[in-house]
Simulated scan of single mutants.
Amino acid sequence: MADTTEAGEVFGGETGEVSTGPAGLGNRGKLLVLVAAVLVLACVAGVSVWRAADRADRKNQVQAGGPAVRSGTVSLAASGPHRIVFRSMAWGPHRDELTTVPANAPNGPRTASGVKCLRFYAAGGTGICLQAERGAVTDSYRAIVLDAGLHEVRHVDLAGIPTRARVSPSGRMVAWTVFVGGDSYAGTDFSTRTSILDARTGELQSTLEDYAVDRDGKRVRAADVNFWGVTFADDRHFYATMATGGHTYLIHGDVTTKTAVTLRTNVECPSLSPDGTRIAFKKRVAGASPDAPWRLYVLDLATMREHPVAEHRNVDDQAVWSDDSTLVYSLPGDYGSDLYTVPADGSGAPRLLTASALAPAWLG
């Protein structure tokens, strides 16, 4: 008897028979095996997808596993209960939005505003929000002045990547710094532009490079001058960092006269205490890594004496004073940035204030 496979395997032929000879299954059997294989593969694929989705879901639960975040009303009003407004870094639909929590419950449920900012600060009922506008090829940036209800008052197009923002205590003056070349203060190959805006009149000082700066009785005239990190004393006077010739300086500036004077060296990202007596700043310390060179210090403006705080990690931030005795600053976290707090007098120890947060402002 000839092997039926030699004549070709037929399913549904004239005889209606399926070959089952020693060379293998007939057509009907092979089709059944094929169907079964497809079903098995489909089941395996389904299980794989389910497991991947389950892992992703569990990962998202971990990532979003901090305080609950819900939409609501966020106010920058200078009155009312003490509260914190910051950029939320938690994964989820409210990531990068301005959110608020009570100051006495920083890990409590967050109320999200719907307004997204890369950098933010607020005081006196005015907010400054440095935003990114995502383009198909490149991004653009702008500074938006916000009223107490987070409504846009005016905006200014920015020349680079946002990095610092501040508002004067009254809410009238706002300032910001952007990188226009490079993207880190750690090296020397960067360029910044710092601007000051009168939120009441709309008058813009587009760059502090137009200021006349006095250093040791002589006018600073250098092509490599950079400014960053404004902190306001009032609507006229401010402190900031100036860099030139490989050195950084603390400067005291006057918005009206467009002049400034250097006060001391090795001061970056100053932050004036609420009582106006001290400045928190990041200082380059000898022996630290070039990629992580800074420690957090406090300078007494009356004596010009400085001391380190109890935070020994690298702090690349413009610290915020939550009150006259406490500093708040950001450090890298699992989702971008976490906020820490430390006593300003050098005592105590740093502690985590709240995770997944950046650019805080204390209001009320």
Rank of each mutant, 00 (worst) to 15 (best):
T177H: 00
G181Y: 12
T201W: 07
S195I: 05
T192M: 07
Y211I: 07
T194G: 00
V167K: 05
V178N: 04
D216A: 15
V178L: 04
V167R: 09
V230I: 10
Y185Q: 02
T201S: 14
W176S: 03
V220G: 10
T177A: 09
I196N: 08
G171V: 03
R219D: 14
A233T: 07
S206G: 14
D210H: 14
A212G: 12
V213M: 11
G171W: 08
V220K: 11
F190S: 01
F190T: 01
A233D: 09
A223E: 14
G187E: 07
W228F: 15
T177G: 04
T177V: 09
D214V: 13
G182R: 02
T194V: 02
G171E: 08
M173K: 11
G182K: 01
E209A: 15
T207Y: 11
S184L: 02
T188I: 01
W228Y: 12
A222E: 05
T194E: 04
W176T: 05
L204P: 13
R166K: 10
D189Q: 12
G202C: 02
D234G: 03
T231I: 01
V230Y: 02
R219G: 12
N226M: 10
V213Q: 10
A233L: 11
F190M: 02
D234K: 00
R164Q: 11
A186H: 00
R215D: 15
G229V: 04
A199I: 02
P169Y: 08
F227V: 09
E203F: 12
P169S: 14
K218V: 12
T194L: 07
D183A: 06
A212P: 07
A212W: 04
T192Y: 01
G202I: 09
F232W: 09
K218I: 08
T207G: 08
T192C: 03
A175Q: 00
D224G: 05
R193T: 00
T163I: 10
S168N: 14
P169G: 13
L208I: 13
R219I: 10
R219L: 13
S191R: 10
Q205L: 13
V225E: 15
